[in-house]
Each structure stands twice: as C-alpha cells, then as structure tokens.
Amino acid sequence: MASASVSPDLHQQVLQFYYREARLFSGKQYRQWLEAMVDREIHYWLPIADLRYRADRRPPPEFVPSIYDDNYDDLEERIRRLETGLVWMEDPPSRIRHLTTNVEVYGTDVASEFDSFSNFLVCRNTEDTDETLTIGAREDRLRLRDGNLTLLRRKVILGQRVIKDTNLYFLM
C-alpha cells in the first residue's frame, strides 16, 4: 500500500474531484464524467467473491466474476445505452444521490499518479416507493496531467454478497 503523503493542495484537489464526480453521478451526467474525469486507459472493476472460511487456502478462481470489468469503450457503450431514451427503467427516471467520504490520498512510484481510498453511499429511488442503499469502498489510481486529475483505475468493493438492488446499472 502506498504511503507517501501528498500536499494539502493536492488533497484538496482530489476532494474537489470526488465531489464533482458525485454531483455528476447524482445528475446522471455520465458522459460529462467520462469525458472530463476519466482517463482513456481506465479500468473500472467490481469483482465479486463468495463467502469462504478464514482457513480456506484455495486461491481465488482463475476467472473472477466481475459485475464491472470495463475499459473506456465499455463505459462509453453503457452510457450510450442510457442515452437512447429506450431504457424503460429510467423513464420515469430514477433519482440517485451519491455521497463520497473517508478520502485518503497517497503518492506512488509514478510522480504523476496517486492512490486514493474512499467510501461511498448511493441512495437510489425508483418508481414511487422503491429505495435501495448501496454502500462500498473504492480503491482508485488517479493521474495528474497538465494540472487535471483523471481516473485511471477503480476497484469497487461492496459488502453485499447478495446485491439488494435489482441491478447495479449506475456508476459508483
């Protein structure tokens, strides 16, 4: 795990980055997020694991099932699907709110890249009464270029083994 601390300015910049991201997610402005905040080399990953005993020495499976295993084009295609206007689940639209907390930022071996850890909470309201909460953690690699941060890698970690929402078709 990275440990080199970063300047208060950079920490502040990362916080701003995450608050902006949360605002764009809450407004479902996914394309703006993709174009302004995401690196072309993004790997956006949400792997799953089954419940095992602590003493279980078996290695993880060779092919880890991942709810998201997306590169830039994969994310773009997901966003394009939403933009068709034919996603009935979003019509009437769901309401979604993203909170980001517990942000830590560390330097890495690469001067222009930073590791960050954060927690998130997503509240999604669908139809008239349906509400789900999805809480998780993110391990990010951020890249700083010409003074701008972009998201290079994201691993999303969820506590829910059985996902309580009908789907996770929203970004975290």
Binding site: L46, E62, F63, P65, S66, I67, Y68, D69, D70, D74, E77, R78, R81, V87, W88, M89, T126, I163, T166, N167, L168, Y169
Partner: peptide
C-alpha cells in the same frame, strides 16, 4: 483461457448484475 475470459466478460456485461440486458428485465419482472 483468453476466450473463456472474454466470454465471461461478455456474458456478465449483458446478463450480470449490472447487465445491459439483465437490468431491463428486472424492471418488468418487478
């Protein structure tokens, strides 16, 4: 192994928990 990984990715991408097809079905089944 490469093809298995590819097939798994495409299968989950379409019919997994955040699947591009699966999430359409959920709203109707509900």
């Amino acid at each position: 192994s490469e093809l298995k990984r590819n097939v798994q990715k495409e299968a989950i991408r379409t019919f997994g928990t955040a699947g591009t097809f699966e999430s359409d079905d959920a709203v109707n089944f509900h």
